[in-house]
């Protein structure tokens, strides 16, 4: 195994492989569009997503309102674009937090003494035994709906996904020949972990993160749909679906507008993750998707 996976040349190589794979190319394109539209949402929205316009309420799609309007005359297309922001606002910190903690705990478990390994594994198994949504609902019931609560709960329940993989990788790397050589040369533990093990773990982590983002975006939308996430009038894909649900007999468009970006996001990140996995590490096959 190479000492470091993410040298400059190899990053370019990974990108090259990714673009040659049709699935990866489509995934990369979708993900870029989602990121860009979320980033520049306030510049590209045709209407103020929270502005009321009662006379024009409950319209179907037209050239003025691409996806129609809701019960308060708000432009559904603009709300959909802004909703992408909320989705990423939740997904990115959640992934970053879960990944950092998973990396830390996973490397300690894989590299440290046996008893610590067992203890951390037990901790992972315990956390995993909470069904995420039920757990989130219990916490929200106490502290009230907020995006920060959603982020914290999903982060906490995602740690084991990352931690377990990091642990397995660290365990197998620990006995690799180049690590033994490093040890013989007198390298400290922190050097081995930081310089040799960490870079080799990052590739697979990126794959899991790409596969995990749709799950998190879906959870946020789900909790916001239940009224446990964003507060009105902030548009999120979940609150769009919630509005659409209560209007289901009047107009189909808010539901279609809330669900479509969720499906597209999911497909984009899944395609990207699959292609990335084939490039980074074929051994990870079958790890993605459901936890």
């Amino acid at each position: 195994m190479e000492q470091t996976l993410k040298t400059r040349g190899e990053t370019a190589q990974i990108f090259h492989h990714l673009v040659r794979d049709p699935l990866g190319l489509v995934g990369l394109a979708i993900v870029s569009i989602i990121l860009l539209s979320a980033l520049f949402a306030d510049q590209i929205v045709p209407y103020d997503p929270v502005a009321l316009n009662i006379p024009d309420r409950l319209q179907g799609p037209s050239l003025t309102h691409l996806l129609g309007t809701d019960q308060l005359g708000r432009d559904t297309f603009s709300r959909m674009l802004m909703g992408g922001r909320v989705a990423l606002q939740v997904a990115l910190p959640t992934i970053a937090g879960a990944m950092s903690l998973g990396l830390l705990l996973g490397m300690i478990a894989g590299y440290g003494p046996r008893w610590l390994d067992n203890l951390i594994l037990l901790f992972f198994d315990t956390i995993r035994s909470f069904p995420t949504v039920m757990f989130a609902l219990a916490v929200v019931a106490l502290v009230g709906p907020s995006l920060n609560t959603v982020i914290l709960v999903i982060m906490a329940t995602s740690i084991p996904t990352y931690g377990r993989v990091v642990r397995t990788l660290t365990l197998s790397l620990k006995s690799a020949e180049f690590i033994t050589a490093e040890k013989a040369l007198g390298a400290t533990n922190s050097r081995i972990l930081g310089v040799h093990i960490l870079p080799n773990v990052l590739g697979p982590m990126a794959v899991i993160a790409a596969m995990d983002i749709p799950t998190i975006v879906g959870l946020e939308a789900g909790l916001s749909f239940l009224g446990m996430g964003v507060k009105p009038p902030t548009p999120s894909w979940g609150s769009l679906l919630n509005d659409g649900y209560s209007l289901i007999r009047n107009t189909p468009w808010p539901i279609i507008a809330g669900g479509l970006p969720l499906i597209i996001t999911t497909l984009g990140f899944t395609f990207l993750g699959e292609a990335l996995r084939d490039v980074v590490d074929p051994k990870l096959r079958g790890r993605g998707g459901k936890k």
Binding site: M211, P214, T215, G218, A221, G222, F225, L241, G244, Y245, I248, R249, P252, I255, I256, G258, G259, L262, I263, T266, L267, F269, T270, F271, E274, G289, K290
Partner: peptide, 23 residues
């Protein structure tokens, strides 16, 4: 398979409610 795997179940619920039950 890849297309249906990660689509959230509640989106499928809402869409099937919309198309097969309401419409």
């Amino acid at each position: 398979s890849v297309s249906v795997i990660a689509v959230p179940a509640f989106v499928v619920s809402l869409y099937s409610l919309l198309f097969f039950a309401v419409q």
